[in-house]
Design a protein around this nucleic acid. Structure first.
Lengths: 244, 244
DNA sequence: CGCCCTTTTGAAGAAAATCAAGGGCAGTGG
DNA sequence: CCACTGCCCTTGATTTTCTTCAAAAGGGCG
């Protein structure tokens, strides 16, 4: 996946001038490949870089004392993490690669300088943070019911994948195991399986070969009570979602 | 409560110079009083102000289609909200007064200007956001079990109250109904009651007359698996918490 | 005193966890 | 080419946690 994914993500958040586009493209970026199930950022570390996903999927997570893992967010190509670096804060959670990932490491000082120079990019970083926070709230709101929570998660991921061109026509690459979906929703893999099967039997979705197929977009949206405007909170009216 | 609560909060996040202290004090602030159960900020609105709680407790919340309310965060004196204004985003959730509240409304443009002028205050705003986000993750992590979730919430609130001088000696004003605690944890008021009683019978806490008494700090911390470092993520080593 | 809000208690039912085991499928190595 | 292995998905039976419905008891306040 190209480094342009990062630029595309930023441009999905704010309009950029040609100059800003060049500035983003000129950011020094070190590429590394992280194999599946390997940590990208450790908990309690203070990253010196801002990380962006060039290809692959990753997740933020924390562990409880009993060993249970809670996934608190998914990272798709274009997403960035480690913004903590910009204000001297350590990571309260860890980030792990869910698939083999290509990661771009952007020097924190260079990123800081660009953010200070460009109000638009500054806004983009804030907006990304606000969207992440809003997403956490939606998880709290909807994960109370497993069926609704999973339906909502699938809507979220489909829309986010569509933004960076990884979903279309009701289909979307979905490289998550049911255990990972369960860890995100706070339920067991067994229960996740039963709920996913129910969604399948209800004719709303299909998941096979790491691909999500949305068979009944309206039905899925209704089951999820999904309203994607939290993913674009700067728009005044509700945008047509890729799910329409 | 004095407007200095706002300043105290910022100074708990970053060290300020005398100049910055004066700048914060000089921010134009309109005071309003919001009665209990009245909205402070509506969902989907685009606030023109940054709001800070001068006195009283408030909560962020969202409603599900079935009418269920999920509280996604508590606001204590000194806390601010509506930072969305600074990057042109609308509110994905609403804010409600849980007690009669005195609110300070800070003009968004004045706040923006101060944030741009002062790197420290800029950092303070970022740190507050990161703490809020980390808190949401902790809720996801620990609310899976009601007993642990409530124990963790009480630890969080005690520490946060202590930071602004509203808790000490194991006691803390806690103006929350059990229904509100339940809405925060995603459980019913009935179940909340049973869990709170169990914590009481276990000798960990007591709640009466809107006052939380921590009878066994170590036990409560253990039940919660509470580690307060997420509330001060810029510190390198784990700070001694007010709970010690 | 009487009213409203909050806390408390009881009993029955639903949702999800837990424990246990079987099946499919892809990759690996003989 | 086939057996083996590891990972993931699936199914069943049982137990725990939490919800729901209903109602009673306490507490503050006009």
């Amino acid at each position: 996946m190209e480094r342009t994914t990062f630029l595309a993500k930023i441009e999905s958040l704010v309009p950029l001038s040609d100059q800003e586009r060049q500035d983003v493209a000129a950011l020094p970026m070190e590429r590394v490949t992280i194999p599946r199930r390997h940590q990208i950022i450790a908990q309690n570390s203070k990253p010196d870089f801002v990380y962006t996903i060039l290809s692959g999927w990753a997740a933020r997570y924390e562990l409880r004392a009993d060993g249970a893992r809670r996934i608190t967010g998914f990272l798709l190509p274009g997403d960035f993490c480690g913004i903590h670096a910009l204000c001297g804060a350590g990571m309260d959670h860890a980030v792990i690669a869910l698939t083999d990932c290509e990661i771009g490491k952007i020097d924190e000082a260079a990123m800081s300088a660009l953010v200070e120079r460009s109000p638009a990019i500054h806004s983009a970083v804030w907006r990304a943070k606000l969207i992440e926070e809003a997403t956490l709230r939606k998880w709290l709101l909807y994960a109370a019911d497993a069926r609704q929570g999973i339906a909502h998660l699938l809507c979220e991921l489909y829309v986010r994948a569509a933004v960076v061109g990884l979903a279309a026509d009701g289909r979307c690459h979905l490289p998550l195991t049911q255990e990972e979906i369960g860890d995100a929703m706070g339920i067991t893999a067994v229960h996740t399986n039963r709920v996913v099967q129910r969604l399948r039997l209800d004719g709303l979705i299909d998941i096979a070969q790491q691909q999500l197929t949305i068979k009944d977009a309206a039905g899925l949206r209704k089951a999820a009570e999904f309203d994607g405007s939290y993913l674009e909170p700067w728009l005044d009216d509700k945008p047509p979602t890729p799910l329409d």
